[in-house]
């Protein structure tokens, strides 16, 4: 079955998108697995890294995906040539976009459509949003095409994040070692707990763990980290590897960055090594008890 990893926390700025990018590129570039990335965040940053996003003419500040490369206006009369993950909430077809990275396909965000999906009334939300992504990812086509799915979520605990968690097989919670971030962890753990209640034994949701992110060599960060590691029961869920605060992790996000991916850095590069170790840990958890391997 296709493994679905969700990067989620309702606090912003913790590194969800960066972590989604690096993990996805690790899986596609280094492991060579067929990977689908999904951007559930109306901010559309994740999408913008891989395809051209255009400003929405009808919604200032919002983004829409560019025309799909396979779109042929003269032949394709049944769609407008743009496709986003938001389509699943409107009963419309989705067409993943290829990216410049082999093995990596993207279902981009669509700002206004995602926001509208999130704004459906309370009674409709379960039927129209919560289970939609799960249903989509369970489709035979999706299961047969992809080995891994990585989902980036908006900084909220709203319907879009819940939809991602309902669809997930694994959750990663990136977090800074700071007060508000740790309160954010607590909030996310509630969602994880709620979800574990309603999973069957053969379809569990696994908390890979909390990824300590943007860690600096200061007392506050060290003490919060050791506090979390010593926490009863929690220690097992704090990843043994930390990501330090480094300029390179934001430099690769710039347009025309060179290198574009940390996996283009030399194998002995400190930053590449640090993140690769964390990615390897996540994938070991994901493949736990299963044969590790590349799709033939």
């Amino acid at each position: 079955m296709t493994k679905i990893v969700v990067n989620a926390t309702h606090k912003g700025g913790e590194g969800k998108t960066t972590n989604s990018i690096i993990l996805a590129e690790y899986i596609a570039l280094v492991l060579g697995l067929k990977t689908l990335i999904i951007d559930m965040d109306p901010q559309a940053n994740f999408s913008g890294r891989y395809i051209k996003m255009e400003y929405d003419p009808s919604y200032k500040g919002g983004k829409i995906p560019a025309l799909h490369p396979d779109y042929e206006p003269l032949v394709d009369k049944d769609w407008d040539g743009r496709s986003s993950i938001a389509n699943i909430f409107y009963g419309e077809e989705v067409v993943p976009y290829p990216t410049s990275i082999t093995n990596l396909d993207l279902l981009p965000a669509h700002s206004i459509k995602l926001q509208e999906a999130e704004a459906v009334t309370k009674n409709e939300v379960v039927e129209k949003v919560h289970l939609q992504l799960k249903r989509f990812l369970e489709l035979e086509d999706v299961q047969n095409t992809y080995d891994m799915v990585i989902i980036d979520t908006p900084p909220s605990k709203g319907p879009l994040t819940i939809a991602a968690i309902k669809a997930a097989s694994h959750i990663v919670i990136p977090a800074q070692m700071e007060q508000f971030s740790i309160e954010g962890i607590y909030g996310m753990l509630q969602l994880w707990k709620q979800e574990t209640y309603c999973r069957t034994p053969n379809n569990p949701i696994t908390l890979v763990g909390i990824l300590p992110n943007q860690v600096r060599d200061i007392k506050l960060h060290k003490q919060f980290l050791s506090g979390l590691r010593q926490g009863k029961g929690l220690g097992d869920y704090v990843m043994p590897h930390v990501i330090k605060k480094r300029a390179i992790y934001t430099e690769i996000l710039v347009e025309d960055a060179n290198p574009k991916s940390i996996f283009e850095l030399p194998a002995n590069n400190v930053a590449r090594n640090e993140y690769e170790t964390a990615c390897r840990y996540i994938m070991e958890k994901v493949n736990h008890g299963e044969e590790k391997g590349v799709r033939n």
Partner: peptide, 24 residues
């Protein structure tokens, strides 16, 4: 000294315990 407050670490601990105990 920076420490995670008791209330927060207790809450986290209880959450994880509950998730383990009532899974499924």
């Amino acid at each position: 000294v920076f420490a995670i407050s008791n209330a927060l670490s207790n809450g986290i601990e209880e959450t994880i315990q509950a998730a383990h105990d009532y899974s499924g």
